[in-house]
Amino acid sequence: MMKPFVEIAKKEIRDALHNKLFLFILLMLLVLTVVSIVLGAYQVRISLDTYNNSIDFLKSLGKTELPPMPNLNPLAASKGFVNYIGMVGALLAIVLGNTAIAKEQKSGTLRLILSRGVFRDMYLTGKLAGNLVILAGITLLTGLLTFVSLPIIGGITLTGDESLRLGLFFLMSFLYMTFFLILSMGIATISAKGSRALLLTVIVWLVFSFVFPQIGDTMDMDNQLPGGFFAQMGMTRAQEQQVLQKFKFYETLRNGIEELSPTKHYERISFALLNVKPGFENNTPWEVVKLKWVNLVGLVIPSGVLWLLAYIGFLRRENIYQAV
């Protein structure tokens, strides 16, 4: 019973390696990843060298009171990768998901496969498994590039805590791409034309990744002035909360729009893990995940719901897919 499942998964991997569009986007992602890591690690290296040169100069003057080592935050070298995954990584997953279903519809091989004793649930699950392996491989490769580049280029050895934070960040990247993979597969299963399904998926991606976050940022009261409205007004945290309470409905609506965006959830938990967003420096990696559990749920639950809907939709399309 498992043999058809494994063969379908293997076929997905082979097909992806022969998909020129997929390979082009993958190459683009890897290039952007290397550029982002190199630039980030190089900035860390420059900051470290500047500090060491300053220390040497002060010692040459006979100074004994030396400034402490600045917080270089080597994890911030992966900050640019968050944006690249949000755009290129999502697009890569969309192409994989659409091609997984559309190519069988276009070639007419789907009906033949299902008539050879392959159940539709096994067929769909095998395709998902194969593409998840591809996404996991991409995540692992980019993760290895990061772990190798930071000590070689940046000259900094990551601590165990920093390594775990970085590992969890790449796990979030995998979950984020998985959402768009399942979304693309789901839309392709209920559409008779692959090109139409791809266009619809890209539109949904644009709305989720750009429109909703932009609406949320534009409506954010604190973004109305450079440097933050509340900071420019000299307000304390307590005063800020008092103001927001008077606009509770407005803030609830604005935050609700942002909560619909998986991209926003991915950014929030990723920036917290990478220490880009202040306030999580003293928390352990697992504490950060616990504190940002809403964002983790915002990545996992929608993927599960979409997969269930795709599964049900695929099973009910008997007039098109011919039941076995």
Rank of each mutant, 00 (worst) to 15 (best):
K246D: 15
T252A: 14
T157N: 05
F170K: 08
S191A: 06
K10R: 14
L27H: 10
L150M: 11
V207Y: 11
R268F: 08
D121R: 15
I94M: 13
V44G: 11
L91M: 15
M177N: 09
I85C: 02
R116G: 01
K3M: 09
L112V: 15
F249E: 06
L29K: 07
S184F: 01
T50E: 09
L110G: 13
G108I: 12
L128E: 01
N275T: 00
F5Q: 00
G130V: 07
L92C: 06
V305L: 13
G228R: 03
I25E: 06
Q43K: 11
P67F: 02
L27K: 03
Y84C: 04
F170C: 07
K106M: 11
Q239M: 09
S173M: 10
Q322E: 09
M69G: 00
R268L: 10
Y123P: 00
G89F: 04
S195M: 10
L183T: 02
V289I: 15
T99R: 14
M2Y: 03
I312G: 00
A76N: 08
T157F: 12
I215R: 03
K277T: 15
K3Q: 11
A310G: 13
F119H: 14
I190A: 11
A41C: 03
S184G: 05
K277R: 13
G186F: 10
V300W: 07
Y84H: 11
A192W: 01
S195D: 14
E258V: 05
S36N: 09
M221T: 13
A41M: 06
G97I: 02
K264T: 13
F147D: 00
L48C: 03
L308G: 02
G313D: 09
S184I: 08
F24G: 12
